[in-house]
Design a protein around this nucleic acid. Structure first.
Lengths: 347, 347
DNA sequence: GATTAGCACTCAAACGAGTAGAGTGCTAAC
DNA sequence: GTTAGCACTCTACTCGTTTGAGTGCTAATC
């Protein structure tokens, strides 16, 4: 059987209406709102579309609901890109840049804006720092028994840990050790630094060495890992309560329990492809996501740092709108954080 | 009418059973499980207790439910402190100290443990830093146009911001400016620092002054505020789905929406009294909390830093258990972070 | 006088029959 | 190939009935 022009139009109409209303769509509705023929004709066509796997039937006497196959077709072929109007763009940019001056707050803000616009649950991943290089290592005394260990990377990311010392250290010792560590590590990527044999490389006096081995080394590793770690920001969690799909308390519960396992979510996001990726229903490996769709996009900062953002929602979502917004956001993040280059004045 | 011995016992029985089952308690149930007389006797007593305001009646032919007044009496007089067994204490300590080496992670961990044990929603507030004093200010170059502004406080808290400069700065200028800022601000509390007239106090060369005014000052204020700001950690949000009180999707929704307004929650927590504070139902000012109880406790670190933690749940909660756990946790936090004093080897 | 047994009464929740309405599938006419 | 017409299906809703837990009251008992 062929997907004739009219069949496509009817399918598109069903998808559009269902995305709006979340109710199964009957032949009469389509017939009234689109001039595609009488209810009976539409019924025949719908019946064909069902046979072809694009529509389903909750029960014999109800209207039609798009299948995952239909959404896939829609996303790949039928959907036309929804250009954002200048006002929309301005509104987004406005929201996005509200007192933001480090990358992570921008990312967090992006998740917020995204959830606001789409009325779905949004998330954003701060960039992976594998290729980022260490620049400085500093040790600053707090009191006799504690120092701040501070790492600064080329991309401007700063991480610090307060380290408790087993024995008090002189400022001199700290200075020497910090200098020595910087000498050894600066220019190395974070991942390299983690795999280096640390003790071997240090050449310092006995006191510094002992302090390093006993107190600093474990914190150093932890701080490196901390720098490498991506942060997951989520927003709009309660948006799902507005969706009829989640009227059932059990559904809402399992959604929240899934979304709360942040480590899992991060893992899943990282392993998604580059660019805009849309997965629909059971295309998501995960059983828990089998009636959700996920849309993610990748942003790049300065050609080196890479992160993701996106939304999760029911398979019935405004794919066109979400795609546009997600794309616009990633573009803007990339533009806002051109490192090293002299930056284009604010907004 | 008097609260006779038997009335008290019956009241206590109703409260205990209701906390367990969330179902209205009938006279037969009490009569069977406690030897306090026949159902008819219990009925008469319950009727009196209702007249006195300790019990209510969802409808004529249902069992009794404790009123807020009953919970208040229970908490103030009837409840006996539930001592934690050594195993319970060990289990808590074990969970609590899992790879924790800064105060904030300990606080976060505490919220986690608390929610796990109580099966309620737990929160913890990192300490307010008003009395904390600035120790260091540092400016570290990242590249020509950006520097890290870093503040270290007496309590070991470190905050940093990456500042974009309008014009490139020499390392010398940065060093001079940092030294000068440290000279002016070290020893001041964070709140004092915020109110000081910054520009007035600097005595540095023209280049440093201009950099300060144009680039550093706004970030400095922001970083100070960031240091002052308390963090709110929450855990066990999805626990409420297991409670019959939140079987209604609307209730669950408004709970989540309330709990998501983090700024509000922080505000409310901060304004609560010292020590263990229990507020029941409409004792909470907030209409949104009118069928919740909130239990908070205060921890002190080193006599200067003060923070809070606690749980929020339905008025029907295990007040005795929650109180004990919350108390044990705050004690442990205080002990774990005796700053300056040589620390007592772990656990 | 306090306690208890007994009984009529109340109400929510569960169940089931009946109905309305939306929608389909099929047939026959256009 | 399209459409009107009609029988049929199924859900959602309504309404009356039943069941069972529990009360309140009265009268008998301790």
């Amino acid at each position: 059987m062929d997907l004739t022009e009219r069949k496509l139009k009817i399918l598109q109409a069903v998808i559009a209406d269902f995305i709006k209303t979340a109710e199964p769509i009957g032949s009469r509705t389509i017939s009234k709102n689109y001039s595609l023929g009488s209810p009976a004709t539409i019924r025949n066509e719908m019946s064909d579309l069902e046979e072809m796997g694009y529509l389903t039937h909750p029960h014999t006497s109800s209207g039609r609901v798009p299948s995952e196959k239909a959404y896939r077709l829609y996303v790949n072929e039928l959907m036309k890109k929804r250009e954002l109007s200048q006002e929309e763009k301005d509104a987004i940019a406005n929201e996005l840049y509200q007192n933001v001056n480090e990358l992570d707050s921008l990312i967090e803000r992006a998740a917020h804006v995204l959830s606001e616009i789409t009325s779905l649950t949004a998330f954003a991943l701060s960039p992976g720092k594998e290729q980022d290089k260490l620049r400085y290592i500093n040790l600053l005394p707090v009191d006799d028994y504690s120092v701040v260990l501070m790492l600064v990377s080329d991309s401007g990311k700063v991480s610090n840990t307060v380290v408790r010392l087993k024995a008090p250290a002189s400022e001199d010792t700290l200075r020497i050790l910090a200098k020595n560590m910087t000498y050894n590590y600066s220019g190395k990527t974070l991942s390299e630094a983690l795999t280096m044999d640390i003790i071997q490389n240090l050449k310092a006096d006995a006191e510094a060495m002992s302090m390093f081995e006993n107190s600093i080394a474990p914190s150093f590793i932890k701080t490196l890992e901390d720098m490498l770690n991506v942060n997951l920001y989520m927003d709009g969690l309660t948006n799902i309560f507005a969706l009829p799909e989640y009227n059932d308390i059990q559904k809402a519960r399992s959604f929240f329990e899934m979304i709360n396992r942040k480590a899992d979510i991060t893992q899943k996001l990282i392993s998604r492809g580059d660019g805009i990726e849309i997965t629909i229903g059971r295309e998501n490996q995960d059983a828990e996501l089998s009636d959700c769709s996920v849309i993610t996009a990748t942003y790049h900062v300065d050609g080196r740092l890479v992160g993701k953002l996106g939304v999760i929602g029911p398979t019935r979502m405004k794919y066109d709108e979400v795609t546009s917004v997600v794309e616009y956001l990633t573009d803007n993040i990339s533009k806002a954080f051109m490192l090293t280059e002299g930056d284009d004045d604010d907004r």
